[in-house]
């Protein structure tokens, strides 16, 4: 059971669709591991329903129903919009660690559910990174994979960064993060994650802006890897 959770605003954003898709994938990943946060999302959806009841209404919008069996919507956008039933996912090595929302996203974007087929790149001694999505601002949704005992370069973040552990565990100055745990790292925080011994650690992370290396070695490292 997850012990570290997103703050409420992320869950409200998820319940209201007020967050971008990569972040929603990450939140949904944590939610798969966390019944407590799923309950919170249900409560927020219920508040949404209550707000729908009291929302200010324009009388001009009131209209009688058309035949409910034939929706009047014919716009191309609506017809092309994704239908509800998701396609089946092929089995792959990601099945063991990736909740369905993540699996589906990876398959849709990269056409694979095989962990080893992802675009892994060197990210430091004992650490690899696979970018799933890169944004114009330099932000990214990425998978990080590190061997036991690996130490990340000390760094800060240009924006908030969210991380969910999928396998293994890591520690930093704030605590120990295990499978399902989600860490919100603020813009101003600098930290140095250290992977626990006992197995590799795989985590999903999303940020709006690139990380900021602190210290000469880390800055050099960033120039080398283009992080």
């Amino acid at each position: 059971m997850a012990r570290y959770h997103p703050t409420e605003d992320w869950l409200v954003g998820y319940a209201n669709d007020a967050i971008d898709q990569p972040t929603a994938v990450l939140i949904a990943t944590h939610l798969t591991f966390c019944p407590e946060c799923r309950k919170a999302v249900r409560d927020f959806e219920e508040i949404g329903g209550a707000l729908l009841d009291v929302i200010d209404v324009d009388p001009a919008d009131a209209q009688k129903s058309s035949n409910p069996k034939e929706p009047a919507a014919t716009s191309h956008d609506i017809m092309m919009a994704a239908d509800d039933a998701p396609a089946d996912l092929p089995r792959g090595t990601m099945d063991e660690i990736a909740p369905r929302p993540l699996l589906r996203y990876v398959f849709n974007r990269l056409g694979t559910t095989d962990l080893n087929a992802l675009p892994w790149k060197f990210y430091g001694p004992g650490v690899q990174r696979a970018v799933l999505l890169k944004t114009a601002d330099g932000g990214a949704l990425k998978l990080l994979r590190a061997r036991p005992g690996a130490v990340f370069p000390h760094h800060g973040h240009g924006s908030e960064e969210l991380t969910v552990v999928l396998k293994g565990a890591y520690r930093d100055e704030t605590g120990r993060y295990d499978v399902g745990d989600m860490q919100c790292i603020s813009e101003t925080m600098q930290h140095q994650p250290i992977i626990e011994n006992g197995g590799e650690c795989i985590a999903l992370a999303v940020s709006e802006k690139p990380t900021i290396p602190t210290g000469f070695v880390a800055r050099l490292f960033q120039r080398v890897t283009g992080v």
């Binding site: 669709d17 939140i27 798969t32 966390c34 990736a98 369905r100 929302p101």
Partner: peptide, 24 residues
């Protein structure tokens, strides 16, 4: 709204997900 206007797929929790912790 997500489907049509953002042209994205909402990230649903899958109740049949083998990794799902705790029931609903």
């Amino acid at each position: 709204f997500v489907d049509i206007l953002r042209k994205e797929q909402r990230s649903f929790i899958d109740p049949d997900d083998p990794l799902l912790v705790g029931g609903d």
